[in-house]
């Protein structure tokens, strides 16, 4: 996930909010949608690393949108930006949509930038974590194979894995070996 191909999606029914956030996150060249429906169409065609959505919108609301979006792109970081959320909505957001952060309107630019950076870092770490885990697993498999071969050899020729080799490739025999 390079800085260059990070893709951010912003969803809000208020065009001026979209413009202000686009300005703020200009370096990421975010994609915008004015409704959850439009955002879902975009999500069908493009991959996103992070999505910021308003809560109260005509049509499907922000949380329901994020739940659907999560099914399509589970790895993307989900952020809710809202002027008002009731407890029920917030619970829904945390439990069902598993949002990364809840940001209140009016927001502070610094907060948004921080949350976006943290969110992306979080995602990067998750991915890295996953990649490392995969690597570990792959090596474990390799290791297991090797171990099986050694065991088979040992069974056939006991002591064959215990041979002491010298630098020049000769076999070093202990005194007890000779007795």
């Amino acid at each position: 996930m390079n800085q260059a191909d990070i893709r951010i999606l912003i969803v809000d029914d208020e065009p001026n909010v979209l413009k202000a956030l686009t300005r703020l996150l200009k370096q990421y060249e975010p994609v915008t949608a004015i409704s959850g429906e439009e955002a879902l169409l975009l999500a069908e065609q493009h991959r996103f690393d992070l999505v910021i959505s308003d809560y109260r919108m005509p049509g499907i609301n922000g949380i329901d949108f994020l739940i659907l979006f999560k099914r399509m792109q589970p790895d993307a970081v989900r952020i809710v930006l809202t002027g008002f959320a009731d407890l029920e909505g917030a619970q829904h957001a945390i439990n069902e949509a598993e949002v990364f952060r809840f940001i209140n309107k009016p927001w502070s630019n610094l907060e948004i930038v921080n949350v976006v950076e943290n969110g992306l870092a979080h995602k990067r770490m998750l991915l890295e974590n996953r990649a490392l885990a995969d690597q570990v697993r792959a090596q474990q498999i390799l290791l297991n194979e090797k171990e099986a071969i050694i065991k088979a050899l040992e069974a056939e020729e006991p002591g064959i894995t215990q041979v002491n080799w010298a630098q020049d490739g000769s076999i070093i025999l202990d005194d007890e070996d000779l007795q």
Binding site: R23, G83, K105, P106, N109
Partner: peptide, 19 residues
């Protein structure tokens, strides 16, 4: 609802000024 209606513009105006 009114808070939402007011927080939206305050949100983007404030953001724009910072930008």
């Amino acid at each position: 609802g009114i808070a939402h209606e007011i927080n939206n513009p305050i949100g983007f105006v404030n953001s724009n000024l910072n930008t």
